[in-house]
Design a binder for these strands. Structure first.
Lengths: 216, 216
DNA sequence: ATAGATCCGTGACAGATGTCACGGATCCGA
DNA sequence: TCGGATCCGTGACATCTGTCACGGATCTAT
């Protein structure tokens, strides 16, 4: 390991600095994490983004080694960003979230994220997780992982989840239909199936339940 | 000022270090802010608390110069802690919040907080605000203050707010009517008035808007 | 290949929701 | 005292939403 030539060693040390992209819509925590990470000798924060679109754009331009993504962001959320970046630049992503639930973890893992860390953890752990992930390992918060084993799977189909997501802010049937390029009747049918599966009476209740379970 | 004896100067310099108590239920942001503040030469973080009760207990024991309190905490929230500490130890408090709305600011000022800072601000501003407040000044985020002046009063009547509150989780018209001992038609009429006044199309949008504005 | 299962999309129907016009109660200023 | 204004409650009507039955597409195991 330490037997390389000095030029090799220098080059390796330089190339070993981990280039990190940071995305969180809350400026205070974003800037605080950035400042802390910059104190680490082996980490470069190369981008700070305030939402998912910015994160995707910056990542596809800068090709960071690791993306640290907040889950709760306006527009594209952290998992959606991770899914997209996995396809386009094979980025390794760590998702951070306030509400760490099994469903969220499952969704994150399905999207191919390499790390999953709730905000109830100490900020010092962030750098450690970034290092692990940069080294090719996966890291999942052990507590959440344990919860996730007590399987609470989402009974909704992909299309039903689409409908729920698009209509999560109380959008009209007509609006959802336009957004998804469907007939209004189709949307109503999906909604009907959702209500039946979740055993609730209104769309809003369905949205609240799904959010609580981490399905959307 | 700078003409004191060297012993005076040293003593003053030592006593001038600002003793700060930190309270936030999210460990990641709490520890991140603590770490950043510790980097400042003139600030001592003397306590880190995860909820309002801990904050009150620690503050009454340690008598910090400034308390930095998150608004959203289980049990006692930041404003309640500030109100209590003002009475017991005349502490100077800064309240930090994710959802900075005029209504919240009004409540905070009424409780006698000395500083008000939304989490949409950069973490570096925190130290600056702490210094100002420790020096006896007040600090209110200018953007929120401006909003608060453009007094956005709730256009809904008491009864309409009742209906909105009872139905905020997507309850059925029939359920709301039963809860409020009204005819279903009356509830629908209130809902209709709410939608018209808030210029939205569905109950769920009305609820989201009202929550965003701090009306329910 | 084929039957079964699942998912998606759609239109017709029934029921829930939003809109409207109305009457009674209360409060306030002329 | 008397309008005028505002709020509350209600029922009839129109519109929107949820339910149901159906057909086509895809996948899998036999």
């Amino acid at each position: 390991m330490s037997t390389g030539t000095s030029s090799d060693g220098a080059a390796t040390a330089a190339s070993r600095r981990i280039r990190v992209l940071l995305a969180d819509d809350e400026a205070m925590i974003r800037s605080a994490l950035a400042a802390l990470l910059r104190l680490e000798g082996d980490i470069d924060v190369i981008a700070e983004c305030a939402d998912g679109e910015q994160a995707v754009a910056a990542a596809e331009k800068l090709h960071p080694d690791v993306c640290l993504l907040d889950l709760e962001m306006p527009g594209l959320d952290g998992v959606e960003v991770a899914a997209r970046l996995r396809r386009t630049i094979s980025a390794r992503c760590v998702v951070v979230t306030r509400h760490a639930r099994p469903g969220v973890l499952r969704r994150a893992l399905a999207a191919g994220v390499a790390g999953f860390l709730p905000k109830s953890r100490d900020a010092r752990e962030v750098a450690a997780v970034i290092r692990r992930v940069a080294a090719g390992a996966r890291y999942v918060d052990p507590e959440i992982a344990a919860d996730a084993l007590s399987d609470e799977r989402c009974p909704l189909t992909d299309r039903e989840l689409d409908v729920l997501r698009v209509g999560r802010r109380g959008e009209t049937t007509a609006q959802i239909a336009r957004e998804l390029a469907l007939a209004p009747g189709t949307v109503r049918n999906h909604v009907s199936a959702i209500l039946a599966k979740l055993a609730v009476e209104t769309r809003q209740q369905a949205v609240l339940l799904a959010q609580e379970r981490g399905w959307i």
